[in-house]
C-alpha cells in the first residue's frame, strides 16, 4: 500500500508517456506523431521534476533574510529539464519543418499514403537520388 502512495505519480507519468509513444507509432498523420512526441517528452520532464520534489520543501530560491532551516526541493532536476524543454521545442520545430516539406512533395501528411506514393519501402529500380548532379 505504501508503494501505491509513494509511487503513484510516477505511474501516471508512465501512462502519459505510453500515450505519447502510442500516438507516435500507431498514428499515420505526421503532425499527430509530432504531438505524440511532445507528450512523450513532457512526461519524461515530469518524471524528473517528480524526482526533485522533497516533501515539505519549497522552490529552490533563497528567501530574503537567509536560508537557515529552509528545506528546498532539489534544483538539479529543474536545471536538467530546462535543457530538455529546449531540446523538445527544437525537435518540434524541425519535425514540423520536415512535415511541411513532405506535404509539398507528396500532397499528403498521412504516412500510409506517402508510402503508397513512394512505392513502398523498396526502390522499384528507381534511384534514390535521381538528378542529384550539381
Amino acid at each position: 500500500m505504501s508503494e501505491v502512495l509513494g509511487l503513484w505519480n510516477y505511474w501516471v507519468v508512465i501512462v502519459l508517456m505510453m500515450i505519447g509513444l502510442y500516438i507516435m507509432i500507431a498514428r499515420d498523420s505526421l503532425v499527430k506523431k509530432v504531438m505524440g512526441l511532445n507528450i512523450f517528452q513532457v512526461s519524461v520532464i515530469m518524471f524528473y521534476v517528480s524526482m526533485g520534489k522533497v516533501r515539505g520543501g519549497t522552490a529552490p530560491i533563497l528567501p530574503e533574510g537567509g536560508a537557515e532551516g529552509v528545506l528546498f526541493s532539489n534544483p538539479l532536476p529543474h536545471v536538467l529539464m530546462l535543457t530538455a524543454i529546449v531540446v523538445g521545442i527544437a525537435t518540434t520545430a524541425l519535425a514540423l519543418a520536415l512535415v511541411v516539406r513532405i506535404k509539398e512533395a507528396y500532397g499528403t501528411i498521412e504516412e500510409d499514403e506517402i508510402h503508397a506514393l513512394a512505392g513502398g519501402d523498396g526502390m522499384d529500380g528507381r534511384s534514390a537520388v535521381q538528378g542529384e548532379a550539381e
Binding site: 505526421l30 519535425a95 513532405i102 513512394a118 537520388v129 535521381q130 538528378g131
Partner: peptide
C-alpha cells in the same frame, strides 16, 4: 535531392 529525403529524415 528527390522527394523522399524529407520523409526519410522525418
Amino acid at each position: 535531392r528527390g522527394a523522399r529525403a524529407p520523409m526519410a529524415a522525418f
